[in-house]
């Protein structure tokens, strides 16, 4: 290849003049939008605060070390609550997401005109709203505690599991489904024998994957009052007790890593 010797020249000739112009305009537009965005941000920023951030950071870091290991003993219960929010929340989500997914999938929906749009709407609404916002709403209604967190996790997960599952249902092989239909099976039996066995492994993978994400999310739901490790974190930050904050951060970090490992193992086993 003689490309290196003519590097600049070749690069320049890669697009004809019209294409080149379009590309440059797009780039210019992108840069302009970015500069405008950044000006907006900097206009709303107190730069003196930003400039002394390194000092602040060093100060906080100093207070975080050494971590208050004694405090770790108290974290047992919040950790248990965090696990429960994620696990029960995922289970609850599965109960609603599975029928919704079958209603939303083109090849299994009972009615294209009513059930399908309804199911798709539920899935989209659930997906667009972060579990922290769900928790905010639910804490307001149900009061602070693990219950609100569990339901928030479930609400957010319905859309996630529902979407991935209905896509998997739509991708199933139609030939075995035809074969089951040709035996005179009812539509329920066709789904149970033709579709369900095909999507089971995918479904298990999705559920475990979401459980793993939920562990991470449930560690912080306490920040808005929904129980678990986040609640302790909120209290410690409020009291400016940084040596405790570092313990909680380490606990969150460890929990997330362990759950990621577990989920990866299970997913490898089912597929």
């Amino acid at each position: 290849m003689s490309v290196q010797t003519t590097n600049g020249l070749r690069e320049w000739q890669r697009y004809d003049s019209k294409q080149g112009l379009l590309r440059w305009t797009l780039w210019l537009l992108g840069v302009a939008v970015f500069v405008w965005c950044f000006q907006k941000i900097s206009a709303g920023t107190e730069w003196s605060f930003v400039l002394d951030a390194p000092e602040q950071g060093a100060d906080i870091f100093d207070r975080m070390i050494p971590p208050d290991w004694e405090y770790a003993r108290v974290l047992g219960r919040p950790l248990w609550d965090t696990l429960n929010m994620a696990t029960l929340g995922t289970m609850g989500a599965v109960i609603f997401a599975v029928p919704l997914a079958f209603m939303a999938a083109q090849n299994t929906t009972p009615s294209v005109r009513f059930a399908r749009p309804f199911a798709l709407f539920c899935i989209v609404a659930s997906r667009s709203i972060n579990s922290v916002i769900w928790a905010l709403v639910l804490v307001m209604i149900l009061g602070p505690g693990v219950l609100a967190g569990t339901i928030a996790i479930a609400f957010r997960s319905i859309g996630f599991i529902g979407k991935l599952l209905y896509e998997a249902i739509e991708e199933t092989d139609h030939r075995p489904v035809d074969a089951i239909a040709s035996t005179g099976a009812s539509s329920g039996q066709i789904i149970a024998y033709g579709v369900v066995p095909q999507v089971t492994p995918v479904f298990a993978g999705i559920a475990v994957f979401r459980w793993d994400i939920n562990i991470r999310e449930s560690t912080i739901l306490g920040l808005v009052g929904a129980g678990g490790l986040g609640l302790e974190l909120n209290a410690s930050i409020g009291n400016l007790d940084w040596s405790r904050v570092s313990v909680i951060l380490l606990a969150i970090f460890a929990t997330v890593i362990v759950s990621e490992w577990v989920s990866a193992r299970i997913r490898k086993a089912v597929t």
């Binding site: 941000i41 709303g44 920023t45 605060f49 920040l223």
Partner: peptide, 12 residues
Amino acid sequence: ILFVKLFGFGTF
């Protein structure tokens, strides 16, 4: 939370 502590409230 950490960055809000460091940089103050706001979009930055």
